[in-house]
Design a protein around this nucleic acid. Structure first.
Lengths: 208, 208
DNA sequence: CCGCATCCTCATGGATACTG
DNA sequence: CAGTATCCATGAGGATGCGG
């Protein structure tokens, strides 16, 4: 990217991460370190030369580091500590995108991992701030486990631990509830969500 | 910009503001509504056709609105309420840029208004949280007035009101102090900053 | 296969001139 | 002043090649 030539924090940031695909690469690495192939798979549409270019740029800038994974000579990419601090501005953009997301997928492809990344960003700004029971989010074939602790939100795959209640809904409804853009009772009245188990626990997470 | 085709908040945000220059246009409008010429002046290097294109895109997306300023038929651009909410992610990127900024201007042009925009973003994350006396920031020929209130930071031009103390420094030192990346005593020992008036008031703003 | 590098085409950005 | 038109340079995207 050509330099903006401005001594301004925003301009300097954008010279590092403003190029097309760059922040999406960081998004992928925020979820977990990944191999070249994982990144190419998680970024449908990126050209292989671009991915290689961008990884080099990000490594040079100090955002990403290339390292040897596990035992063998397998290359793996991970965020540096500074790179991982991009979670804050990324969370801000995720929150800002709420009006764009509640329109629904509109043909765009959907990956559950992106929702897992978005949920804490959306929920963190709603001042529940007290621990909740673990609830389940049933989306298509999968159920996620979601829980608020005193330190933040945990989102992950369902495990053997019990869930107080479960809500089944489309991704866009989950996002709407988490962002506070969709009212819990409205969603229930419209049949957009389907509750199993203890409704109060689910409402404690999303209710207004 | 070509669509990413991903139902992900970050990707959708970037389809709106990810194009080159877009966030810098928003930065300019965060400071005040502006006319076409003001924007062209505040964005050195932008081609006029690009500025026109981007303003159209941002208007279509609902980030910017075009309106008639004052009494006459003068067109003016301003952020919509949703567009103004980009301040959060922009502040995040400004904070993230600290390691890039403390290297100094390195030939990039500097505008005082960019520093005025950055200061609250940097100071907000430092948990002083209590009101301070108003102090002066002397940078080149200009002195800014800076004060913490219970609700946030006020930065603006100096007026007739008294200043408890004044600190003179290069922009990069001001940024380093505000970001917590430069220690007050170190800066003083190195002669990077020059205090007039009440040092305690200045230290209350930047001291660790 | 995985991890890129090369090649080619076409869309986009940049600089400048020009117009209502 | 507020943009458009034009032309050229650069970068994205897609296909493919190639060594380990």
């Amino acid at each position: 990217m050509r330099s903006y030539g401005q001594y301004c924090g925003l301009a300097r940031s954008l010279e590092v991460v403003g190029d097309r695909w760059n922040l999406l690469i960081v998004r992928q690495l925020l979820m977990a370190p990944a191999r070249y192939r994982d990144l190419a798979d998680g970024l449908p549409g990126i050209a292989t030369n671009l991915l290689a270019d961008r990884l080099r740029d990000l490594e040079t800038a100090g955002v990403v580091e290339r390292r040897l994974a596990g035992t063998g000579s397998v290359v793996e990419y991970a965020l540096t500590p500074w790179g991982a601090e991009l979670r804050e501005p990324i969370n801000g953009l995720i929150r800002w995108s709420t009006p764009l997301m509640i329109r629904g997928p509109e043909g765009d492809i959907f990956r559950l991992e992106w929702l897992v990344l978005a949920l804490p960003a959306l929920l963190d700004k709603r001042v529940t701030s007290r621990p909740t029971e673990a609830i389940g989010l049933a989306i298509d074939e999968t159920t996620l486990r979601l829980r608020a602790t005193r330190y933040g939100f945990e989102v992950g795959p369902r495990d053997e631990r019990a869930l107080a209640g479960t809500v089944r809904a489309e991704p866009m409804c989950i996002l709407g509830l988490a962002a506070g853009a969709l009212d819990f009772d409205d969603a229930a009245a419209l049949g957009l969500i389907e509750i199993e188990g203890d409704e109060a626990s689910v409402r404690a997470m999303f209710g207004s």
